[in-house]
Design a protein around this nucleic acid. Sequence first.
DNA 1: GATGAATGAGCTTTCATTCAT
DNA 2: TATGAATGAAAGCTCATTCAT
Lengths: 188, 188, 188, 188
Amino acid sequence: MSNKRERILSAAEVLIASKGFHGMSMQQVAKHANVATGTIYRYFADKETMLRSAHVERLSEVAIAIVAGVDASKPCYDQFSKLWRNTLHYLRANPDSLCYRVQYEASPLFNREEEQQIDERYFKTVLEFFECGRAQGVFRDIPAQLLGFIALENLMLLTQKCTKGCIELDDELYQQLLDASWNAILKR
Amino acid sequence: MSNKRERILSAAEVLIASKGFHGMSMQQVAKHANVATGTIYRYFADKETMLRSAHVERLSEVAIAIVAGVDASKPCYDQFSKLWRNTLHYLRANPDSLCYRVQYEASPLFNREEEQQIDERYFKTVLEFFECGRAQGVFRDIPAQLLGFIALENLMLLTQKCTKGCIELDDELYQQLLDASWNAILKR
Amino acid sequence: MSNKRERILSAAEVLIASKGFHGMSMQQVAKHANVATGTIYRYFADKETMLRSAHVERLSEVAIAIVAGVDASKPCYDQFSKLWRNTLHYLRANPDSLCYRVQYEASPLFNREEEQQIDERYFKTVLEFFECGRAQGVFRDIPAQLLGFIALENLMLLTQKCTKGCIELDDELYQQLLDASWNAILKR
Amino acid sequence: MSNKRERILSAAEVLIASKGFHGMSMQQVAKHANVATGTIYRYFADKETMLRSAHVERLSEVAIAIVAGVDASKPCYDQFSKLWRNTLHYLRANPDSLCYRVQYEASPLFNREEEQQIDERYFKTVLEFFECGRAQGVFRDIPAQLLGFIALENLMLLTQKCTKGCIELDDELYQQLLDASWNAILKR
DNA sequence: GATGAATGAGCTTTCATTCAT
DNA sequence: TATGAATGAAAGCTCATTCAT
């Protein structure tokens, strides 16, 4: 079995986080992944394909991490709290993945249709949670996608600022932020 | 009179938005700005300096746009509403500037100290508004920077998604989002 | 088997001789050496490194050529004559190498310490000859390096003038010049 | 009266000595000479012309310096000694001019016919001295040009090595070198 | 005459991709 | 399958030269 594919994607992610989307070369990826340059092209048609693959695979990973341990039988807030904390935890544990995503989504590689398919495929559970809360009249009467966005997406930029050292957060502040997100989506 | 400097920065912004931070070349910028390649280097020491300048100058512009018409004598919510709508309006009117900023901040060009200075210099008024609301017990008891972040920063990613066509928003939804932001920062 | 490195150095030498130290471009070298531009950079870190390598390798070559067939058991004059004629022969056979050296030594690439090491490493035999003659009281009582300089170095400029067509020399004149060099270093 | 022309030539000389024949730009020359870039082109048709002018004018200067105070009524050796010391003195006082000359003569700018005309025009007196000594049977029976070359030219490379710090010379050694040059050209 | 902003060809160097081994 | 030397287009940047002022 070959773990080369995974090594290559990891190397790309690390390099993009440290050197930026530009400034990462296939040679560097190869060296970092401990494979020959040509080997990359046995797993990916070209650079773009490699970057897309890294993106998709990281998203599927984060999707799993977010819903881990979320118990649909528990109260709505508990589920939300779990989702929020999972997201935070993943982002803090994988700052490279985050850096990568932000740059990817701002890049011309980003493709709306593709992204929608990914969302629907991987984030189904998350969207269903918000859909459900909305149907029960707990959340605002706006698309589930938007609820999810308000509640979780800004964690992305926030964590990035933390990673870069612009903001420092402690448990007390995290609790406040969780509470803020909850209040944001709540119907009144 | 020389508007070349401005033309160059604009061209860079447009190109980054359409082709990504990587994939923008100095030659393209020159062509877009209708100047010779060498001319760029009369205004900026190198590519990095040019990119930094574009970043700083755009931030100063957005800072002015955000606080325009905010009346400190009006009720707190009115001021907030104005700030929020100003931000939204600017972002929608300048999607390129937005795209640029996200990529810049995720890139290795980004420098914490520099950014802090910019924040303090240009966004003083905005931060003061949040500071004031916090002091009066209207907003959560967390740093003003964080209040500002929760309330306004996620507009950035949201507008980006709109621009890319991932989300469609109408006035009714905007009102909901404004309300969500307000509830997020409010003390209870 | 790779003779590319050698082809590249040769091409550089030829081009510098014909177009000058400036006016030689890496592209030209590549074309002349029948390799791609990028290939040069597989063998040399950058232009400067390539130029340095050419210099050192040519010096080691000339050092070997100069002492070829010099028999230490023969009379002093015979040895000197052989050295002098070897030098002359090499320079006439390799006018490009000469042109290159003069320009290299006058350029900012030239580094004293480095040069001293090269001298000591490659021209040991030559210096020893002069040292020996000096010790025996045959040559002037001045540093061997200086004796070598007086006797052989001006052949460099002289041959250059010949190559450029400024001076024309025949065997009779060469004999006179050899004699002049001999008289210059001789103690009286 | 404008001394700009002279300032420009001096600047070029200094820059070439420090940065090499390549690595000197017209912009740098202009800045060094305290004139505008365009101004250079009011005095010289192009870069090549400027470099040629610098060469010719320096040679005329050195020619004057070499024969200064040489008294044709004095004994031959005294005249030679004066010539030799003048040359040495000029070269030591103007290492830049030297550096420049070596590079110029090795460059493609160098032109045989032109050089011959310069020699004949400026170095007439020097050549006549050697011609005369040869006619009187004091010097070797070889062209005056060659006598001059043997006697004085190697001072050029020697001084260059001194300037670069490769060789250290004192008065005692200079006397030896003068003597060596004298013996080299002497008929026996 | 003098200026220096502007030009764009050409420089050194990088890097996505290929292909003989 | 895997390799990595080789490629050459294209990148960032420089600089001899021009020209409107």
